[in-house]
Computed example of a mutant assay.
Amino acid sequence: MERALEHDLIVSIGDNILSPLGIGTEETYHAVNAGYSALQQYEGLWGIPEPFIASLLDHKAIARMLDDKFPTKSFAAYTSFERMAILSAAYALEQADVDPVSERVVFFLSTTKGNVGLLDKENSCREEISLGYSARQICGFFRNPNAPVVVTNACTSGSCAQIAAMRALQSGRCDTAVVIGADVQSKFIVSGFQSFKALSSDPCRPFDKSRSGLNLGEAAATIVYSRRRPKDVHADDWVLCRGAIRNDANHISGPSRTGEGSYLALQAVLQDDCPIDRLAFVNTHGTATPYNDEMEAIAIDRAGLLSVPVNGLKGYFGHTMGAAGVLESILSMQAAANHTIPGTRGYSECGVSRPLQLSASHQVTGRRSFVKLLSGFGGCNAALLFRQGDELC
């Protein structure tokens, strides 16, 4: 590159959410702001004998939208997972006014399970189940000449993908990064979580005393990032300032009881240039499982953030796995831009050992920075710091 890039900022220039609460970022945000939830009980779905609560997409509607948007294209060779990722990316690229054919554009796919549901089919092809295969299908649809980057690190995948994109932009590898987070549910996934006894028989209640487990969800979400000089960042632009990944190496399916990994990730992104009193909120992972919520509460306390409002979004659309970090980052940007601290749906009485600043209802804020926190199986943890352009002036 002809000039140094270390002082450039990583700015969101387009985004999209496809969720059971809405087709598009604004529609989904307004549904959350109105307090709606897409969680509902399913009985007998996919031949699963035990009822479960989840938030599922209308994949027939997504197929129709793709046909309407790309009438000359055939989507017969694409799975439901690939179709929703393509549609979300297409809307985000359109908003960002980016040509995906450019060699200076790189795609990043965040997912935990991809097409694993194909294992239920007798004649499934091993290649089609590969996450790399799906990423090439999605990237190929847009005729992008670069190899896509697949990021799969349990529930932190969406944040890890954004960090990977940030690093690619900062290094000069690309000028634009398209980060897609997506996952679909299936008999394989639901049965797996049921075997862990991790699913709640009621809508989930993050951080609440009566919480009893998580609900699963489906979504696709996309953020398009670009590199800009500080003088070219506008007051209402959202900047991804820092990201950190830390592993506490506690257990394959259990978080550290001391919140070590999440604390270290928070410590890494919170530095002197963003005082705690400038944070609007910490958007947590908030799965509503006993150990995860407690671990995050301890980490938030250890990081000195007990005075900062905390919220979790799983009560609106469940745990969307590989989409969670991208979807919840976008919704948090929308909320902060609208002077809002989202309420934690399902929360009533504190059920963790630390006095977090939680509320079931939305609150008003004038602050323009927030932290996104995620944790997942294998002891992985990630944190992101977002600030709006006027906060950087």
Rank of each mutant, 00 (worst) to 15 (best):
S110W: 07
T112E: 11
T112W: 09
T112C: 13
T112R: 00
K113N: 09
N115A: 11
N115S: 06
N115G: 07
V116W: 09
G117Y: 05
L118W: 07
L118Q: 10
D120I: 04
D120M: 10
K121E: 15
E122V: 13
N123R: 13
S124I: 06
C125V: 12
C125L: 09
R126N: 11
R126D: 01
E127Q: 14
E127T: 14
E128A: 13
I129M: 15
I129F: 12
S130P: 03
L131Q: 10
L131E: 00
L131C: 06
S134Q: 08
A135S: 12
Q137C: 15
I138H: 02
I138T: 11
I138V: 14
C139P: 10
G140E: 05
G140V: 04
G140C: 06
F141G: 00
F142N: 04
N144F: 03
P145G: 08
P145A: 03
P145I: 00
A147P: 05
P148A: 08
V149I: 14
V150W: 05
V151L: 00
V151Q: 09
V151W: 04
N153L: 05
A154S: 14
C155Y: 02
T156A: 08
S157Y: 00
G158M: 07
G158C: 11
S159E: 00
A161I: 08
